[in-house]
Design a protein around this nucleic acid. Structure first.
Length: 615
RNA sequence: GCCUCGGUAGCUCAGUCUGGUGGAGCGCGAGACUUGUAAUCUCGUGGUCGCGGGUUCAAUUCCCGUCCGGGGCUCCA
């Protein structure tokens, strides 16, 4: 059980007290404080607990915020801080308590409130008259954790330095000759220079129109429901990343989505994410929902016997789901969710040298996903000043692998667990980045989680761990693909890459007598691993063509009397907005060529459109 | 979380300012048509006007609260 400061708040008509006799731990007081009476007061009975000693300043701050908040709500005139040990069975040391109570008094007073504090460590008689309105009796537990950063902007003044790195040369952000508008947009965004247009990102509407995904009103904010077409695309992307990482030697695992905060390493790692966690309590456990796969991965690695011969060693998991309690105003479409799916690769490296080498390999892997998914990534590399100083040659070379300018952020001090990271972002229709792949060198977690390996000299050492998401979250990938269609709308008809298109080939019939032929053709294509369906509804050809277009179907074939006679098919090719005459085998070849070696899954919808449900 | 705008039929949206029996298109159902490349015609079905409270003879409309969504701020270890 974790204990925290407990307070009982009473809005009273009056409170009177009188000191009787000292205890061993009594504080020295002047005579005038030996008794007192306060009218219309918010009395704060307070017990300082063991846990509070870990971060007394934060407890004081949180308690002060809470008390002031209630004070203004009820409109009392005085605040009376009353030490009251009996609220807790796990008290802090008397000295810590005295300090915290004193600091609370000072901090409340600094807000120009009338504050009094009743002496600590005396036996006292007291009389309190509670007002009895709904807010007059409240209890609060104050956590020694960060709540809102609102009041203390003092920390973290040290700013990062931003530069552009191109062809091994460093440029000032204002002097760089920008040629690529997406890159310029990322720079502007990083430097807080992005102007807002007040529009909704187009992918939000498209994801619903195309029946991919929708909001689930009966869940929390930022959790989606996925319809069959969207689910198919998710699964194909998951297959894609699985193949990508396993081909490079990663071993897939699956770990729990919730963790016990009683585990010290889990708790400390969890608290790095502050309030943005889902927490849940069972009868005797406090649990958190994972925000990435680190927890499970690290626990596996900590329990695994690893030697230098095994390194680098990579384990992979697709987190369905990761949970982040983003602020309600930040959640939007597929870009920012509270429940999302992230490919998460953790690579154990013997030392910094090996981790840099692996980092380079993973840069290639992440860049490859941009090519495979046909997404343009702009890149930002972030390093601590120390790391840059010692490894400048490597940093420049790593950035050079991108083959175009990248932003280099230099952090004066290590602020997080990583010393070097690279973020790849697609730029959305409104010119804002969607953070996709990321690679990070983690120098902290191995030790915290007790992950070790045996080196050649049989010494037990903590490795370096690289976190990598080769595509970023699956939802963001889909969001980026949809944004891209909106950006390119003037250049080409919107569509998914053929391997991700739910329907790859649609066959539509002119009259009922053409259905048998259409179904036989569909069957042939299906046998060749092509997702095909048949629009057998009694609508006009014009209308069926239009429908196929609005579903972004890449290849559409009309079957009429002519097709029954010959083996030639008139194929509508969406990408080029053209019609082309070809036979069945040519079509199969063409589709397979589009799909290349990307993953395939069958169409999880009925073949005949007349039988389909409208989601 | 704060500020701001919105929530009306399965979907897209009008109506609300100025309170008085709620509209259109698409979809869906029925019928007609039997169709060759981006919406065939006619008829019909369809609503707790997000939810809760208040004001009023009367509330989708005005007021308060709340939930959900968009944008901005902030944040994205």
């Amino acid at each position: 059980m974790v204990w925290k400061m407990r307070i009982l708040l009473i809005h009273s008509d009056y409170i009177k007290y009188k000191t009787k006799s000292k205890t061993k731990i009594a504080e020295e007081i002047e005579d005038e404080k030996k008794e007192g009476e306060f009218k219309n007061s918010l009395v704060v009975f307070t017990a300082v607990e063991k846990e509070d000693e870990k971060n007394p300043d934060l407890v004081v701050e949180n308690a002060t915020l809470e008390i002031a908040d209630i004070f203004f709500k009820i409109g009392a005139e005085n605040i009376v801080i009353y030490p009251y040990a009996h609220l807790s069975s796990s008290l802090s040391s008397p000295n810590a308590a005295k300090k915290i109570l004193h600091d609370m008094e000072v901090q409340l007073r600094s807000q120009n409130l009338n504050v009094s504090r009743v002496p600590f460590g005396w036996y006292k008689s007291f009389e309190v008259s509670c007002k009895g309105h709904p807010l007059s009796e409240l209890s609060r537990t104050i956590l020694p954790e960060k709540t809102e950063p609102q009041t203390n902007e003092k920390i973290d003044i040290q700013k990062s330095e931003f530069n552009i790195l191109n062809n091994g040369k460093l440029y000032n952000v204002d002097e760089f000759p920008y040629e690529n508008s997406d890159f310029k947009k990322l720079v502007d965004y990083e430097l807080d220079r992005t102007k807002s247009s007040g529009e909704e990102p187009p992918h939000v509407k498209i994801m619903r129109e195309k029946k991919l995904a929708g909001y689930e009103p009966s869940a929390d904010i930022g959790h989606l429901r996925w319809y069959p077409k969207g689910k198919l695309i998710r699964d194909l992307l998951a297959d894609y990343v699985y193949n990508l990482v396993t081909e490079r030697g990663a071993m897939p695992v699956e770990t729990p989505i919730m963790y016990d905060l009683a585990d010290e390493a889990i708790r400390v790692h969890a608290e790095k994410f502050g309030e943005r966690q889902y927490r849940m309590e069972t009868k005797n456990k406090q649990l958190m929902l994972r925000y990435a796969c680190c927890f499970g991965a690290f626990r596996i690695l900590a329990d695994t016997f690893i030697t230098w011969k095994n390194l680098p060693l990579a384990i992979y998991e697709l987190s369905t789901y990761s949970f982040r309690l983003e602020k309600s105003g930040e959640v939007v479409g597929l870009k920012r969710l509270r429940g999302f799916t992230m490919p998460d690769l953790h690579t154990v490296c013997a030392d910094l040298q090996q981790s840099m080498q692996e980092f380079s390999n993973q840069i290639s892997m992440c860049a490859q996903t941009g090519k495979d998914l046909e997404l343009n990534y702009e890149v930002i590399m972030r390093v601590t000043a120390d790391f840059l100083e010692e490894n400048q040659e490597w940093v420049f070379q790593a950035a050079g692998m991108i083959g175009k300018p990248v932003i280099l952020e230099i952090l004066p001090k290590r602020k997080h667990y990583w010393i070097c990271k690279m973020d790849f972002a697609a730029i959305d229709y409104l010119g804002r980045p969607i953070e996709n792949p990321t690679i990070q060198i983690d120098v902290e977690s191995a030790e915290r989680f007790g992950i070790t390996y045996i080196n050649e000299d049989e010494e037990d050492l903590n490795p370096i761990i690289i976190h990598c998401s080769p595509t970023g979250s699956i939802e963001r990938v889909i969001g980026s693909l949809l944004e891209k269609t909106a950006i390119k709308i003037d250049e080409k008809p919107p569509m998914f890459p053929v391997w991700l298109s739910p329907t790859q080939v649609r066959i539509l019939t002119i009259a009922e007598r053409h259905l048998d032929f259409a179904l036989r053709l569909a069957d042939d294509l299906k046998k060749q691993n092509i997702r095909v369906d048949v629009d057998d509804r009694p609508d006009t050809v014009r209308k069926k063509i239009r429908n196929a277009g609005s579903e972004w179907v890449p290849y559409v074939i009309v079957i009429g009397d002519k097709e029954l006679e010959s083996d030639q098919l008139m194929v509508n090719i969406r990408e080029f907005n053209e019609k082309s005459l070809m036979n069945k085998n040519k079509l199969i070849e063409r589709v397979n060529n589009d799909i290349d070696n990307m993953p395939f899954r069958k169409l999880p919808l009925s073949l005949k459109l007349s039988e389909r449900v409208n989601f």
